[in-house]
Nucleic acid binder design. Structure first.
Length: 596
RNA sequence: GGCGCCGUAGCUCAGCUGGUUAGAGCGCUGCACUCAUAAUGCAGAGGUCGGUGGUUCGAGCCCACCCGGCGCUACCA
C-alpha cells in the first residue's frame, strides 16, 4: 500500500451544458458522468473536492431557440436550466455548485476578467466584416448562413464550409446567401470588436501544453496543432443577450461579450459563488490561487480548444490581477483536460434537429440512473467514438451489471438474511476466506489509480473483476449447503462474503451511487455512503433568486478502504438492485426512435 | 485540401517505452451447482492482429504506400 497522502484540493470542472434545449445521453457521457466518477472517488479518498458548473445561457443559439418558442431568451434559459438541472440531479451528478451564467456574480467576474485583459492590452480592437440579419439586426454567425457554394455550385453550403466539396468558405463569397433562421438575405457590414490577442500567448501555451504528459494524446496533439497557428479571436458580438462589455464604446444594446468567453469563466465564477453560498467568501482561493491544487476539466472533444488554448490564455493574461484576483496569486491553469469522443445513437450521429437523440429526462423516465451510468462508463467514448444501441444497453444491464454484481449482492444477502438475520459472527478464517478478502481489498488501489488516470472503462472493469472473485468464492464455499451441515462454518463464509460485498459497494460507489447506497443500507449500515443531492435557493440583493444544485458531501460516511463489517449488525430484507430488462425493450425503444 | 484517430476472436474493446504459446467481457459449446432476478462456477472452441513492402536477432506495437471507417479544421455552442 502506498503511504496515505495528505488531502488534496481538487477542482472538478465539468463543461457547462448549453441551455438551448435539453441534453441527450451523449452530452452527459462527455462531461457529467466521468466528472462525477472522478469527484466521488476523490471525496471517498478524503480529498477536498470542489465540483462546479452550471448552464451556459448566453449566445445566439439561445436567442434563436427562444424566438422559435415565442419566449424571451431569459425565459428559455430559465426553462432549460430547470430541465438540465433536474437531469443532472436525477443522474446523481454531485456538484458542489451547479449554477448558471445569468447570475449577477458571474457577470461581475466575467467583466473583471474582461476589463483586466483589456487594461493589460490583451484585448485589442479590430474591425471585420460581419453578417447581420436584416429582420432582427442581430449578428448572423457563419453557421446560420447558407447559400450556393462558389466552388462546386452545391446549393446547401453553409457559411463556414461546404458540406458537398468540403472546402472552407467565407460567407461573403456565397452565391445567393440567406439566413437559415428566416430565409432573409444577410447584410454584410463593417463592425468593430475586441479581439483576444492569442498570438501573444503562443509561446507560453506551447511550452505549457508540451509539458503535459498526463493528457490523453489526442487532446495534447490537437492542442499543440492549434497553438502553432493562433490568430486573434473576437471576444465581443453584435447582439444584446450576454454579459455587458465593460469598455467604453461598446453599448449594451448592441454589443455583448462572446458566449464562450464568459462560459469558461464559469468555472471560476461558480467557485466564487460556492464560497459565498457556504459563508466562506475567500474559500475559492484555496483552489484557484494555490499552486498545489489540481484542476480537472471534463468535456466532449468539440470543447477542447476552449479549454486548452483560450481559457488558459485568459488565465495567463489575467494572472493575479483584477478585482477578484486581488494580487493574491496567479489563477491556476488546468491540470488535465479530459475530453471524450462522441456517442452515436444506433450508428447515427446524434442530431437535435433530426431528433436522433436519446434525451436524459426521457431515458430516466423509464430506466434507473445507475444502469445508464454503468453503460456510459463501461462502454463510454473514452478514446474513440462509441455507439449507443439499445441492444447493448439491455445486454450490459442484464448480463453484466445484474448477473455479476447485482446477483452477488442478492444471493449473499438472501442467504445471510434468511439464515441469520444479521451479519453472522465469523470463527477461524481459512486461506480461502482471507484470500478473497485480500483480493477484493487489493482492488481499491487498482480501481483508484485507474480513475485517477481517467481510465474509467478499465476502472469499472477492475471493480467487476473484484465482484467475480466474490462470486467464485461463494460458489466454491456453497454456504447454502453448509447451513445444513456446519452452521458455524456457514456463518464464517457468509460473514466473509458480506464483508466483500460491503467493500465492493464502495468500489462501485463512484460509478453507481444509488445502488451502492442501497447495498449500504441493506447491510445494516447507517448514514450516507455517498449522499443525496439537493437544491438550494440562493441569490444576492438586486437579482432574482436562483436554485443551485448542491449537496452536503462532508457528511458522507464512506471511505475508499476495505470494509471491516461489524458482526451482529442487523440486516435489512434484501431486494433486487437492478431490474432485468426484457428483450422486447430493444424493439420498443427502436420504435420510439423511429428505427425498426 | 490540412491535421489527427481508428481498423486485434461472432460482438464491444485491452494490449504502456517492440521480446517467450496475442488478452478481457459478452456470446457460443460442454460440465457442475441450484442460495440467487435461470443469476453463478469450471472447462473449452474461436483471432496471426485491414493489405503490401520494409527496418530489426525479433513487430499487433517502428517506417512507407494502399484499402476501409471516422473526427477536427477554432469568429456554432
Amino acid at each position: 500500500m502506498k503511504e496515505r497522502a495528505l488531502p488534496e484540493k481538487i477542482l472538478v470542472a465539468p463543461a457547462w451544458p448549453y441551455a438551448s434545449g435539453p441534453r441527450h445521453i451523449g452530452h452527459v457521457a462527455g462531461f457529467a458522468v466521468p466528472a462525477d466518477v472522478f469527484a466521488r472517488y476523490h471525496r471517498l479518498k478524503g480529498d477536498e473536492v470542489l465540483m462546479v458548473s452550471g448552464t451556459d445561457e448566453h449566445g445566439t443559439p439561445v436567442m434563436v431557440s427562444a424566438d422559435r418558442n415565442g419566449v424571451s431568451p431569459r425565459e428559455l434559459a430559465d426553462r432549460n436550466n430547470a430541465v438540465i438541472r433536474d437531469d443532472l440531479r436525477n443522474l446523481g451528478i454531485s456538484y458542489d455548485c451547479f449554477t448558471r451564467t445569468t447570475t449577477r456574480n458571474h457577470h461581475l467576474v466575467t467583466q473583471d476578467i474582461f476589463r483586466t485583459l483589456h487594461e493589460k492590452g490583451y484585448l485589442v480592437e479590430r474591425s471585420a466584416l460581419g453578417a447581420f440579419s436584416p429582420a432582427t439586426g442581430r449578428t448572423l454567425p457563419d453557421r446560420y448562413i447558407e447559400g450556393t457554394c462558389p466552388i462546386c455550385g452545391f446549393d446547401g453550403a453553409r457559411g463556414d464550409q461546404c458540406d458537398n466539396c468540403g472546402n472552407q468558405l467565407d460567407p461573403v463569397d456565397l452565391i445567393d446567401p440567406r439566413s437559415i433562421i428566416d430565409g432573409s438575405t444577410p447584410e454584410f457590414r463593417e463592425t468593430t470588436h475586441l479581439f483576444l490577442d492569442l498570438p501573444a500567448f503562443a509561446g507560453r501555451l506551447e511550452e505549457w501544453i508540451s509539458a503535459q504528459d498526463t493528457w490523453r494524446p489526442n487532446v495534447r496533439n490537437f492542442s499543440l496543432g492549434l497553438v502553432r497557428e493562433l490568430k486573434p479571436r473576437a471576444m465581443t458580438r453584435d447582439i444584446d443577450w450576454g454579459v455587458v462589455v465593460p469598455v467604453d464604446g461598446y453599448p449594451a444594446d448592441t454589443k455583448r461579450i462572446y458566449v464562450w468567453f464568459d462560459a469558461v469563466i464559469g468555472y471560476l465564477s461558480a467557485s466564487i459563488e460556492w464560497a459565498h453560498n457556504v459563508g466562506r467568501p475567500d474559500a475559492w482561493r484555496e483552489w484557484w490561487q494555490n499552486p498545489d491544487a489540481r484542476h480537472f476539466y471534463f468535456m466532449g472533444k468539440d470543447n477542447i480548444v476552449f479549454h486548452t488554448v483560450i481559457w488558459p490564455a485568459m488565465l495567463l493574461g489575467y494572472g493575479s490581477g483584477g478585482a477578484f484576483g486581488a494580487g493574491r496569486g496567479d489563477l491556476h491553469l488546468p491540470t488535465n483536460v479530459v475530453a471524450s469522443e462522441y456517442v452515436t445513437m444506433e450508428g447515427k450521429k446524434a442530431s437535435t434537429s433530426r431528433n436522433v437523440a436519446i434525451w436524459v429526462n426521457d431515458f430516466l423516465s423509464r430506466y434507473d440512473p445507475d444502469p445508464l451510468r454503468y453503460y456510459l462508463t463501461a462502454a463510454g467514448p473514452e478514446t474513440q467514438d462509441s455507439d449507443f444501441t439499445w441492444e447493448e444497453f439491455v445486454r450490459r444491464n442484464n448480463d453484466e451489471l445484474l448477473a455479476n454484481w447485482g446477483n452477488l449482492v442478492n444471493r449473499t444477502l438472501v442467504n445471510a438474511y434468511r439464515n441469520f438475520g444479521e451479519v453472522p459472527k465469523p470463527s477461524h478464517l481459512s486461506d480461502a476466506d482471507s484470500g478473497v478478502i485480500a483480493g477484493v481489498a487489493g482492488a481499491f488501489e487498482e480501481v483508484g489509480a485507474l480513475i485517477d488516470e481517467g481510465r474509467f472503462r478499465a476502472a469499472i472493469a477492475a471493480a467487476m473483476r473484484a465482484s467475480t472473485l466474490a462470486n467464485q468464492y461463494v460458489a466454491e464455499q456453497a454456504p447454502w449447503a453448509l447451513v445444513k451441515t456446519d452452521r458455524e462454518r456457514a456463518a464464517t463464509v457468509l460473514y466473509v462474503a458480506l464483508r466483500c460485498v460491503d467493500s465492493l459497494k464502495t468500489l462501485f460507489a463512484p460509478f453507481l451511487p444509488f445502488t451502492s447506497q442501497a447495498v449500504h443500507e441493506m447491510l445494516g449500515n447507517d448514514g450516507w455512503l455517498a449522499g443525496p443531492l439537493e437544491y438550494r435557493v440562493v441569490g444576492e440583493e438586486g437579482e432574482p433568486a436562483h436554485e443551485v444544485l448542491t449537496g452536503d458531501y462532508a457528511s458522507w460516511v464512506g471511505a475508499w478502504a476495505p470494509s471491516e463489517l461489524a458482526p451482529g449488525q442487523k440486516l435489512q430484507e434484501p431486494r433486487p438492485l437492478f431490474r432485468k430488462l426484457p428483450p422486447e425493450t430493444v424493439g420498443e425503444e427502436l420504435e420510439r426512435l423511429g428505427i425498426s
